[in-house]
Amino acid sequence: MKSVKIDELDRLVIAALLAHPRATHAAIGQAVRSSEATVSRRLARLRRFGAVRVVGALDSQISHRARSVFVRLRCAPGAADELALPLAQWQETGSVKVLTGSVDCVAEVAYTSNEHLYALMMHRLPQFDGVMATFSNQVIRRFSTPHGWNPGLLPDTVVAELRADRRDRWSEHPEPDEAAPMSELDEQILTAVIEDGRMSWQDLAARCGVTPSTARRRTEALMAAGVLRMRTVVEPEVLGLTVNAFVWLTINPTKIGLAGEILARHRNVVMIAATTGDRNLCGEIAVASDSALYEFLSETVGHLPGLIHADVAVALRTVKRAGMIAPELRTAVAPSLP
Rank of each mutant, 00 (worst) to 15 (best):
K5D: 02
L9Q: 11
R11W: 03
R11Y: 01
L12W: 00
V13G: 00
L18N: 02
A19Y: 10
A27Q: 10
A27E: 12
I28N: 04
A31E: 00
S34K: 02
E36T: 05
R42L: 06
R47D: 03
A51N: 03
V52T: 08
R53G: 13
R53K: 15
R53M: 15
G56A: 10
S60L: 05
V71T: 11
V71C: 09
R72I: 00
P77D: 12
A79M: 14
D81V: 14
E82N: 15
E82V: 10
L85W: 06
L87H: 08
Q89G: 07
S95Y: 09
T100C: 02
G101C: 08
V109Y: 15
S113W: 11
N114P: 02
M122K: 15
R124H: 12
R124Y: 09
P126Y: 01
Q127F: 12
F128L: 13
D129K: 05
G130D: 07
V131E: 13
T134N: 05
T134M: 14
V139N: 13
H147T: 14
N150T: 15
V158G: 00
A160P: 10
E161G: 08
H173C: 05
P174G: 01
P176S: 01
P176L: 01
D177Q: 07
D186Q: 01
E187A: 15
L190E: 00
T191S: 13
A192E: 05
A192W: 01
V193L: 10
R207M: 13
G209H: 01
V210Y: 13
A215E: 06
R218M: 15
A224P: 08
V227L: 11
M230A: 12
P236W: 11
P236C: 12
L241T: 00
N244R: 10
A245M: 08
V247Y: 13
T250A: 06
P253Q: 07
T254G: 03
I256S: 09
G257P: 01
L258M: 12
A259L: 05
I262H: 07
L263C: 05
L263A: 03
A264R: 12
N268T: 07
M271T: 11
A273S: 13
R279D: 09
R279C: 01
N280D: 09
V287K: 05
V287I: 11
A288K: 05
A288F: 00
S289K: 05
S289R: 03
S291R: 06
L297T: 02
P335Y: 14
P335K: 15
L337S: 13
P338L: 11
